[in-house]
Computed example of a mutant assay.
Amino acid sequence: MESQSKLQEKEVVSVNKPRQTKSSIRTSNRKKWKKAGIFTLFVGPVLLAFSMIVLYPFLSGVYYAFTNWNGVTGNIEWVGLDNFKYLLFEDKQFHASFILTAKYTVVAILLTNVVGFGLALLVTQMLKTRNILRTVFFLPNLIGGLLLGFVWQFIFIRGFSSIGQLTGWSLFELPWLGDANTAFWGIVIVSVWQGAGYIMIIYVAALQNVPQELLEAAKIDGANRWQTLRHITLPMVAPAVTICLFLTISSSFKIFDVNLSLTNGGPFKSTEMLALNIYTEAFVNNRYGIGEAKALIFFLIVAGITTLQVMYTKKKEVES
């Protein structure tokens, strides 16, 4: 009896279920093809451009990292892991550039975020000139790195020298680009001056989204400005901190144009960052295979560090 009732229910369902005719199937197929065509029309050119400009050079670069090629002739010799062994155990300049880049990255991340957040706090106050200040602070980011380096090279050499002669301050009489230590800090100053305005814009957007009710309630409860900043403002802008840390880490590791135009790695390669070292190896020394091996190691390090940073700061956002 139960089996008969189940069969009857199935028959009723099959009768009530609308049957698809050939015309409806054709219509649905046409809609699918139309959607696929529209998707291909919009995504296809972008995907093709991405493949030609980014994907193919990256994959070919990975291949050349295992070869001995000068970047000019057609003679490409497969050497396997020899390039990586040379970089890890013999190339002293690569080690020095990596250590210098790591040191610069730590300093630039801290200063750029602190200065950018401080500027964001300033321009979100009830000031009459806050819109003008936002524009002034953001303007250095619009100047290209090469041009910026040459401008600041003139400032460090001629401008600081003139100020030092007028004031007698020893700070302006230092050989800013002629000594390894001062040249390093010269690059840091220019990079922070250029990047802090962009980071400021992100922090401004986050600070404007902080509920004013929370700030007013904290003020009524007797919290001072530091307590309000530490316990309310900073946790509320944590997503912006994640973005800014990611941007500053990647840009600091990849610094090239300012380094090239300001010091060109001098004096005596003491300020040669990793990106400039890779460029010099591949296009000046004509050792393209070793240059690609350096670039591959560089890519893996930056990708690993930025991934760990995003994962860690995202967890902190959830906890806060």
Results as ranks from 00 to 15, higher is better:
Ser5Gln: 15
Ser5Asn: 12
Val12Phe: 12
Val15Leu: 08
Asn16Thr: 06
Pro18Trp: 15
Pro18Leu: 03
Arg19Thr: 04
Gln20Glu: 11
Gln20Asn: 08
Ser23Ile: 14
Thr27Met: 07
Ser28Met: 13
Asn29Phe: 10
Trp33Ile: 09
Ala36Trp: 14
Gly37His: 11
Gly37Thr: 11
Phe39Met: 14
Phe42Arg: 01
Val46Asn: 08
Leu48Ser: 06
Phe50Gly: 00
Ser51Cys: 11
Met52Asn: 13
Pro57Ser: 11
Phe58Ile: 13
Phe58His: 06
Gly61Ala: 04
Tyr64Pro: 00
Tyr64Lys: 04
Phe66Asn: 01
Phe66Ala: 05
Thr67Ile: 07
Gly71Tyr: 15
Thr73Ala: 10
Thr73Leu: 06
Thr73Ser: 15
Thr73Tyr: 09
Gly74Ala: 06
Gly74Val: 01
Val79Asn: 01
Asp82Met: 03
Lys85Phe: 02
Lys85Ser: 09
Tyr86Ser: 07
Glu90His: 12
Thr101Gly: 05
Tyr104Asn: 00
Tyr104Ser: 00
Ile109Cys: 09
Leu110Tyr: 15
Asn113Lys: 07
Val115Pro: 01
Val115Gly: 04
Gly116Lys: 03
Phe117Asn: 02
Gly118Asn: 11
Gln125Cys: 09
Met126Ile: 06
Met126Gly: 06
Leu133Asn: 07
Arg134Gly: 05
Arg134Asn: 04
Arg134Leu: 05
Val136Gln: 12
Phe137Met: 01
Phe138Ser: 03
Pro140Tyr: 13
Pro140Ile: 07
Gly145Arg: 03
Leu146Phe: 13
Leu148Arg: 01
Gly149Glu: 10
Phe150Arg: 15
Phe154Lys: 04
Phe154Ser: 02
Ile155Leu: 14
Ile157Leu: 12
Arg158Phe: 15
Ile163Arg: 08
Gly164Met: 01
Leu166His: 11
Leu177His: 04
Ala180Pro: 15
Asn181Gln: 12
Thr182Lys: 05
Thr182Asp: 02
Phe184Asn: 03
Phe184Trp: 09
Gly186Asp: 05
Ile187Ser: 00
Val188Asn: 12
Ala196Lys: 04
Ile201Val: 11
Ile201Cys: 06
Val204Cys: 06
Ala205Cys: 11
Glu216Pro: 04
Ala218Cys: 08
Ile220Asp: 08
Asp221Tyr: 15
Asp221Ala: 05
Trp226Met: 06
Trp226Gln: 04
Leu229Met: 14
Thr233Ile: 15
Ala238Leu: 15
Ala240Val: 07
Thr242Glu: 14
Phe246Ser: 11
Ile249Arg: 10
Phe253Val: 00
Val258Met: 13
Gly266Thr: 07
Pro267Gln: 08
Lys269Met: 06
Ser270Cys: 01
Ser270Thr: 14
Glu272Met: 14
Leu274Arg: 01
Ile278Gly: 07
Ile278Thr: 13
Thr280Gln: 12
Thr280Tyr: 13
Val284Cys: 01
Ile290Leu: 10
Ala293Thr: 10
Lys294Gly: 00
Lys294Trp: 03
Ile297Asn: 03
Phe298Pro: 00
Phe298Leu: 02
Phe299Met: 12
Leu300Ser: 14
Ile301Arg: 02
Ile301Met: 13
Ile305Tyr: 07
Thr306Ile: 09
Leu308Asn: 03
Val310Cys: 07
Tyr312Pro: 00
Lys314Asn: 12
Glu317Arg: 11
Val318Trp: 14
